[in-house]
Design a protein around this nucleic acid. Sequence first.
DNA 1: AAGCCCCACAACCGCATTTGA
DNA 2: CTCAAATGCGGTTGTGGGGCT
Length: 276
Amino acid sequence: MKNLSSSSSRERNKNKNKKTLCCSKVGLKRGPWTPEEDEVLAAFVRKEGDGRWRTLSKKAGLARCGKSCRLRWVNYLRPDIKRGHIGPDEEDLIIRLHRLLGNRWSLIAGRIPGRTDNEIKNYWNIHLSKKLIGQGIDPRTHKPLNPNPPPPPPLMNPNSSAVEDERSNKALFNTESESNHNNFEGTDIALSPEEKWWSSGGLVTGIQAGDGDDDIFSSIIDSLIDIDHHTMNDGVLPSSHIIPSFVCGGLWDCVVSPSNVGEDDMENCGRFTDQV
DNA sequence: AAGCCCCACAACCGCATTTGA
DNA sequence: CTCAAATGCGGTTGTGGGGCT
């Protein structure tokens, strides 16, 4: 997850990181892993734990860069990886999560036990994107493929109330200078824990979930999946649902009315993604 | 049998972000 | 606070295998 507020450090690091050498440039081995290397890496991680990949590879005596070791462990050697065919249920879940989260493969993978982000990414690119195209659906936006696209919609949802817009803006521009504070004191809006989490910068500042945040994030995703399910099946949303205003299509790219999320709202998806 | 093409998957690369000295 | 190193993520490429001509 990218921190939108750190563009200055991003610039600072841009040049700095250019001198970071890849394994190929410092004489380390590349290409497919051998069974012997797998065994050494797996045994070492089992014994010492993961993390600190660069020093881990040195200690383990592997002529591989830390990145390569991490990738091999995460995508292949980890014991909880489920191998084999991705079933219809998983496929459906991937599609719905992608509709909600976009190309956040690691987030999607986090909701599908035993599957890795790389696996899901590959599966999406090879199978699901083609499948959706075959169904006349744009795999990027999950909207019907339309040869004559309408003009871009207005930035904010004209149907949303001022209060909802305020929520949206506070959630979107969540810094002291931009929204003063992250609560809605002075209004009569009661925020759920999920909304507080969102408004306190949850996704905007990255999924750095601490105590309890994991649960909140999980419940949000569960709600979104549920909402998505309702929306797709009968177009009716349970009135109890309140959705952060920037959570569909892309991550922070649509304004959603708290009580009525329908196709109009899904239509609004995509606008902020293009703005950011 | 040989050559070609396509698919699936593993791995790499570049960049952003976080961490720690 | 600054900077270098470490880590994580998403996009892309490389490669092996299978099917087809």
